[in-house]
Amino acid sequence: MENNHKTNHKVSPAGGDLEGASKKEFNITIYTENQIGLLSRIAIIFTRRKINIDSLNTSPSEIDSIHRFNIVINEYEEVVRKLTRQIEKQVEVLKAYYHTNEDVIWQELALYKVSTDVIAEKVSVERLLRENGARAVVIRKDYTVFETTGHREETDNLINILQPYGLIEFVRSARVAIIKDSEGFNSKLREFERLEPGEEVIENEYLNQGQKVFTM
């Protein structure tokens, strides 16, 4: 039954009091079993709360048979914490972490297609590309494809630079991120495989408050 009493209070879609907090970019890292349907199980945790996924990457992890998701969203930390718990609750998720951009090393890869004629004619383009750390992946008579890897601003920057020279096509990959303070998942996995895993695996944020790593 619908609400008859409107409140102006600022409440997050996932609940919780957000007064005074502000949104920022968070990197969610998820270690999972390699299971069909898991992508959708994870995605709906966001869509149900009307939260936009800015970037999503799935890949193998350092461990054979274990997959790693990197998801980027722009949200309040309170919301991200709750989302992470909902994700970790899924049966086939081993562990979910969230980190700010400062806590991770991250990269995105971008491809740019420009006319080879323009490149050949305008020396300045070549200089701009070099200054932006781009390299040619393919050079054909009609077009050239450049590639660059970096942060969002860097790949964005090159779009702006190439736009006046007739950028034909542009694509950017999802973000991949390595956690600065992580020691990897190998030892954790061995714990998970035990019938009675140690405390470390089922750690929670209360015990980790003093540490650098956010973890649940």
């Binding site: 996932a14 609940g15 919780g16 914490r81 709750k82 718990r85 909902q86 970790e88 609750k89 929670n204 649940m216």
Partner: peptide, 8 residues
């Protein structure tokens, strides 16, 4: 259920 702690 850890997801219930601090949810609401």
């Amino acid at each position: 259920d850890p997801a219930e702690i601090d949810k609401n």
